[in-house]
């Protein structure tokens, strides 16, 4: 269901959107960008494709149900790569990434939205914190800022839409909730997620040998400080 057909025909075409169920569906973003619909198998496909050397591939960027392949300038996809994209998507990888226990100071100045979020969820402050610390999160992908990890696994009761108006400045290390995701702001800056606490970890430092603390597939467990 790939299409690298004549784009001049585009205005007449009514093509369906990328559909995760299609597994190997892919579309061009530009002649260097190939967007794969990977659905729940995004991490598995990312792991599978990254484990091999593709001379024509410059980078692989996992996101929310999609995986972007960036081709080197001027490179075309080899038959082997096309074949790998069309192969059956494997089920979510059972391989476990590194587990990071992260201590969090909940509420107060560190987490100014905690009380409102607890009230919205119909929970006491302590019950909210217990709920947030009870589960193991998985890094689905990184984006927004260098090192900003989108953590999957937030209990459904804690899902909440982003703030109507973003804060101008969110302190680095803020633990935040946005939609179905939890995240930790790597650097101070504007942010639209709800702040529930602060972690005393440096999640991104470009000068470290491993700049990002959290990588796709890693796991996180929050611990109340």
């Amino acid at each position: 269901m790939s299409h690298d057909t004549d784009p001049h025909a585009l205005p007449l075409a009514r093509r369906s959107s990328l559909h995760p169920a299609a597994g190997a569906a892919w579309r061009w973003v530009s002649e260097r960008g190939v967007l794969l619909a990977t659905g729940d198998a995004t991490l598995a496909r990312y792991a599978a494709l990254s484990s091999r050397h593709w001379p024509e591939v410059e980078d692989l960027v996992p996101a929310d149900g999609t995986l972007l392949l960036i081709l080197r300038p001027g490179a075309a996809m080899s038959a082997a790569l096309r074949q790998a994209l069309c192969a059956d998507a494997t089920s979510p990888s059972g391989a476990s990434g590194v587990l990071h226990p992260i201590r969090v100071e909940y509420g107060g100045v560190a987490g100014p939205d905690l009380d409102a979020l607890a009230a919205r969820a119909g929970l006491s402050r302590d019950a909210y914190i217990n709920s947030h610390t009870a589960v193991e999160y998985r890094v689905a992908f990184l984006g927004f800022q260098p090192g900003f990890a989108y953590l999957q696994g937030l209990p459904a009761a804690l899902h909440v839409p982003r703030r109507a108006s973003p804060r101008v400045r969110v302190p680095a290390g803020s633990v935040a909730i946005g939609g179905v995701y939890c995240g930790i702001y790597p650097a101070s800056g504007p942010g639209g997620w709800h702040l529930i606490g602060r972690a005393a970890v440096t999640v991104f430092d470009p000068l470290r040998p491993r700049p990002a603390l959290l990588l796709p597939g890693d796991r996180v467990r929050f611990v109340a400080a």
Partner: peptide, 11 residues
């Protein structure tokens, strides 16, 4: 800097 897209860092 190539190869850091998965870390949220563009080229």
């Amino acid at each position: 800097r190539t190869g850091y897209g998965a870390l949220g860092v563009p080229v």
